[in-house]
Amino acid sequence: MSATAILVLIINAILVNNFILSRFLGICPFLGVSKKIDTALGMGFAVIFVMGVASVITYALNLLLIKANILYLQTIIFILVIASLIQLVEIIIRRFSPGLYAALGVYLPLITTNCAVLGVAIMNVTLPVPSVGSGLLVAFINGISSGIGFTIAILILAGIREKLQTADIPKIFQGFPITLLIASIMAMGFAAFSGFNIG
């Protein structure tokens, strides 16, 4: 696997096909935990960890499924892996950072149903970038960089929302409406990256 291939994978996952802003997956925590930069960062790291580990385990398990010819179990097994990983993350965060645990609240167990995590697992077995092919290492790099892409998007939104607290926003736009507007403008900005011809 060449260095170019790794770079292509990383840029593809972080910028060109950013999970939130290009694929529109994982919107729930993106809007829910982006009030403060600290909690957004915590959420981002949790997602990076879950995506990275889940990518490796699900890719390996998928090989087993192909061998046993029971590929129809793919979704349910992937969800099983992801749910177990979330449990582990929850236990660890609760032990080492009660503040972050309280701040993330219900959104931490909700990573289980975060479609971005299932999305990265399924994309790994169906060629994330066709020219690079697939493999355990590809899956791992793709998982980690997708998580970083998620973190960057949520951090940008959290940064803007922190500034918004002192901004003079018309009453009807306060709260969620302005957040959705910002998210859509950010998505338009990221659409510019789709010009990269790396497929």
Binding site: L61, L64, L65, I77, L80, V81, S84, L88, I91, I92
Partner: peptide, 16 residues
């Protein structure tokens, strides 16, 4: 396969 996997994961979670 499914039962085995669930068992493995639940044991890991229990230990953690």
């Amino acid at each position: 396969l499914l039962t085995g996997l669930a068992l493995v994961f639940s044991i890991i979670i229990a230990i953690f």
